[in-house]
Design a protein around this nucleic acid. Sequence first.
DNA 1: CGCTGGTTTGACTTGGCTCAATCATCGTGG
DNA 2: CCACGATGATTGAGCCAAGTCAAACCAGCG
Lengths: 245, 245
Amino acid sequence: MHAHVSPMLSNNRQSSTLSPFSGAYSTREYGRSGPLDEIVALGRARMVTEGTAIHRAGDAFRSVFYIKSGAAKRVLIQEDGREQILGFPMPGDIVAIEAISAGTHSTTVVALDICAIVEIPFEALEALAAERPDVARFLYQRMSAALREEHSWLAALGLFNADERLATFLLDLSQRFSARGFSAQRFMLRMTRAEIGSFLGLTLETVSRVFSRFQKLGLLNVTRREIELLDMDALYKLAHTRPTH
Amino acid sequence: MHAHVSPMLSNNRQSSTLSPFSGAYSTREYGRSGPLDEIVALGRARMVTEGTAIHRAGDAFRSVFYIKSGAAKRVLIQEDGREQILGFPMPGDIVAIEAISAGTHSTTVVALDICAIVEIPFEALEALAAERPDVARFLYQRMSAALREEHSWLAALGLFNADERLATFLLDLSQRFSARGFSAQRFMLRMTRAEIGSFLGLTLETVSRVFSRFQKLGLLNVTRREIELLDMDALYKLAHTRPTH
DNA sequence: CGCTGGTTTGACTTGGCTCAATCATCGTGG
DNA sequence: CCACGATGATTGAGCCAAGTCAAACCAGCG
């Protein structure tokens, strides 16, 4: 998605041996900007196993969470029990910023893999931001970037068909991996077809079918969770975007 | 106040001549929080005629805009020219907060009616927030609330069918009118069927058909832009929500 | 009057959903 | 070690909600 502005980028000379396939991956290389380090220093890291919730909708809001390593899904649960996946946070991302001011969390974030997370008490964060303009600005930036992201996905759901949505999704993942120093072509999907479908407003069968068709067309190779993008140009065309950079 | 303001809106508890959208009303009735008044005081009001852009995607970001009166649409324009409407700001709303930190605006906001707006230079706003914790907190609140809103609509596009989307849309309008002191049952749609469709990820024909069917079922009365909600319970059921009050 | 922009309604098509069967991979316990 | 579920993925057949195309219709305005 064109709007995937990673606030923090690219000067990572990441060793290519560390592949997304290898499980938990570190983030030292990604996300070095002054304020972030200090913000993360407000909390202490802990591990969370696959399948456990980092926070749940309805919980009292006290903290935001920094994803240090691993993969997760952000879920909005409707009153009738249906679930909409809102995104797949990656290392360097901060989750629960939409709950600031709300009193309680509105979303649930679940680890898709073993995760290292840092719980950052919002009170401390707000206090730091009050005396450090760069920290406040960092917060505005993260929140506004999150808004722009949601806008892009809203447009994708409103305007795109299944092919376009899946192409957009794959390119978004690709760019985010690449921004973190991993291959833009080969990576591991951490989520099931059903989860991709929920995120994109499609059924798991449709996701599977589109994968198969894309493979038949030579756009990519996919087996289970491993994926290799072969024809990025075609994918970008489908996603109605140009590569960013 | 304009000639075309219909007398149908007479049962609101404010001045009966005041239409939800066209009358300028002070910020005191809605969203009264200390910081907002001071924030709005950072800029000067000006009028914008129907059809003109308050800001355009691509413009350099310098300000956010407070909607004092009138109605508008927030639009995301894709590279291929297609448009996705992201929302319909009402008086009391602040637009362009997603552009903070981005350098340029990513969305376009167009007046659907004559609007009174206040351009608030972000530099001044940030400076005020730097020394006034309550102002900073107000900003966090607005941004996180905006994120939660987008989440809801994302879920609506991902999970709801045409009926459910339109019911959700009408109830959202209803609640926002009611929060501003107007009737929750009878109000004026300021946007075309095509604009509603764009917002909800539907075609204008589908929107029209669903309106007709809802009318046949006795859920509402609609003629052109005037709408009256008759069976709120049924609409809430369709929208999978309970009334918030 | 007769445009013009917006709306309604109808006939038809289709993309993606539902239901269902099959298959692959992996972890577990006998 | 293999048999066995269990979980996830693939694929097919049929169907339906919403899209497309097209024709009226309607109100407001010059």
